[in-house]
């Protein structure tokens, strides 16, 4: 039951995309998303598709892993498409009862669907190729400038990485306690809603106790190793831009430029 839930969906593989600096991937994803919403013609989306396909190919992540994330937004997408389809004013092409579908509506709905799908695929590629720790590291360094306006960037990213690190531990713990209580005849599946909630007590009480114990142990271990917040703290593997990262930024700029030109000059 527990193994079906995947959080922090890193897919290990040996590829250039995996090795890129997390900041590059964060910026890259952002650039890609912005470009999706700036593009207004089919030719632009052909360009975006080509770029996405190439990136997926290079990343060596199986395609089925990438599309898995799409299931979650399917309903959201349907609603968006429906609203755009029926509520865009323009030349009517089709009429059912009081609802009118316009040519402009079809176009906007199609673009919206493509945007949402590509947005999810694009960010999935990032989370699939970057470990959660790298991601928070990248955010800490990338957002470092916010420290000047007294945003506790280090603390926030430490909280995030500890939380991410604890998810698998607590899932494992839940699984273990659940099994231990099942061995004592506990039933977590049958009964009505109130009964089910009541049945969770033997699971939740030990889980909370264990979460507090672990948090306590971790705090103690961190203090014992001299942790005192982000001030003056150095990294074991500091993030540094390598040549491939600079290349990636260059390619991003080329992509934006190409997209802009296509958007402006090609009329279809």
């Amino acid at each position: 039951m527990m193994k079906d839930i995947t959080l922090g969906q890193y897919y290990p593989a040996d590829s250039v995309i995996h090795k890129l600096d997390p900041r590059v991937k964060l910026v890259g994803t952002m650039v890609f998303i912005v470009s999706l919403f700036a593009f207004r013609s089919i030719s632009c989306y052909i360009l975006a598709t080509a770029v996405l396909v190439v990136i997926i190919k290079i990343s060596r992540v199986p395609f089925q892993f990438i599309v898995r994330g799409l299931k979650a937004i399917f309903i959201l997408m349907m609603i968006t498409v429906a609203f755009n389809l029926f509520l865009t004013p323009g030349t009517p092409v089709f009429r059912i009862w009081k609802l009118t579908i316009t040519a402009e509506g079809v176009e906007t709905a199609a673009f919206m669907a493509i945007r949402l799908v590509y947005l999810i695929i694009g960010s999935s590629v990032m989370t699939l190729t970057t470990t959660p720790n790298d991601l928070t590291d990248g955010m800490e360094k990338g957002l470092g400038f916010l420290k000047r306006v007294h945003v506790p960037v280090h603390e926030i990213s430490m909280i995030m990485s500890i939380a991410l690190r604890f998810i698998p531990i607590l899932m494992e713990e839940t699984d273990k306690i659940q099994k231990a209580q099942m061995a004592r005849g506990a039933d977590f599946e049958s009964g009505n809603l109130i009964q089910k909630a009541k049945n969770l007590i033997p699971l939740l009480v030990p889980l909370f106790v264990s979460a507090f114990r672990r948090a306590n142990d971790l705090a103690m271990a961190m203090e014992a190793r001299g942790y005192h917040g982000g001030e003056g703290r150095t990294k074991m593997r500091p993030l540094e831009y390598k040549n491939r990262d600079k290349c990636a930024y260059l390619l991003m700029a080329v992509y934006l430029l190409a997209g802009g030109l296509v958007n402006y000059f090609v009329r279809f």
């Binding site: 306690i177 061995a183 005849g185 506990a186 030990p206």
Partner: peptide, 29 residues
């Protein structure tokens, strides 16, 4: 359920599964 009552399994660190208000109630579970 029947099988689990016949084959009792005590997990590693079984004390982590205790949850009731007192010892007696926990054993009654």
């Amino acid at each position: 359920k029947e099988l689990r009552s016949r084959v009792g399994l005590v997990f590693q660190y079984p004390e982590h599964q205790l949850f009731e208000i007192d010892v007696f109630h926990d054993v009654c579970f």
